[in-house]
């Protein structure tokens, strides 16, 4: 790590890393969990099969989310990029739920 940076920008850099870490851990887990329940509700197989498929696929989703968070150019873009799929998946889940309830 560069040691020569000025204290202010160094602090900003560390804050950026911390913020990304939070986005990766919690955002990544939320995206993975939501993807798993969307598959669980949405797949046309039996409830047990759909649940297992969603659970097994979830870790790939989380890995992709973490890679995205640390690859994005700025911490803000990382957060936006993780928030959009979470909102989308959450919406799909609610729609699927309603469709099943009706």
């Amino acid at each position: 790590m560069a040691r020569s940076a000025a204290p202010a920008s160094e602090r900003l850099r560390i804050l950026g890393i911390l913020s990304r870490t939070v986005a990766a851990l919690f955002g990544g887990y939320a995206a993975a969990a939501l993807a798993s329940v969307c598959l669980a509700v949405g797949l046309p197989t039996s409830p047990a099969e759909a649940a297992l498929t969603g659970m097994m696929a979830s870790f790939a989703v989380m890995t992709g989310a973490v890679v995205w968070v640390f690859a994005a150019a700025t911490a803000l873009r990382a957060w936006i990029g993780i928030a959009i799929p979470i909102v989308l998946l959450g919406g799909i889940f609610l729609l699927l739920r309603m469709g099943h309830g009706a």
């Binding site: 798993s36 598959l39 409830p47 649940a51 297992l52 979830s58």
Partner: peptide, 18 residues
């Protein structure tokens, strides 16, 4: 390895479907 412990760490699909 993650899959062997997924019922503990990713239980949400079971919660929803059952």
């Amino acid at each position: 390895g993650l899959v062997t412990l997924m019922i503990l760490t990713m239980p949400w699909a079971i919660m929803t479907n059952f």
